[in-house]
């Protein structure tokens, strides 16, 4: 199991456009990725390719989330996803 933490950089938090971009990126990966708030137990982690899950997560600007994945290429995939979360997508 690979695990990475990321701090949400988008001003509006992880919903709207930033959530769309992130969910679409996860959806293109061959592996399953989960996302959860840092403070939440592992079993509460949700499907990161689901925009509805991301929206219900309620991760605001500055919130720390944990991404988890298993399998080949998991480390590289998570690195790339962390970069997306730590970019202010709203500003672009």
């Amino acid at each position: 199991m690979s695990e990475r933490k990321a701090t949400i950089a988008s001003r509006v938090g992880l919903h709207a456009r930033p959530a769309s971009i992130f969910a679409a990126a996860v959806g293109e990966l061959p592996i399953e990725v989960t996302i959860g708030l840092e403070a939440d137990p592992v079993e509460d982690a949700m499907d990161a390719s689901s925009i509805l899950s991301l929206m219900s997560l309620g991760a605001a600007n500055g919130a720390v989330v944990v991404l988890r994945a298993e399998g080949e290429g998991a480390d590289e995939a998570l690195e790339a996803l962390v970069k997306i979360l730590e970019t202010d997508l709203d500003a672009e």
Binding site: A16, R17, S20, M46, D47, S49, S50, I51, L52, S53
Partner: peptide, 15 residues
Amino acid sequence: AVLEATALMAADPML
């Protein structure tokens, strides 16, 4: 932006 998000919802795993 709204339509892009709505398109993702259409095949959303949660739904």
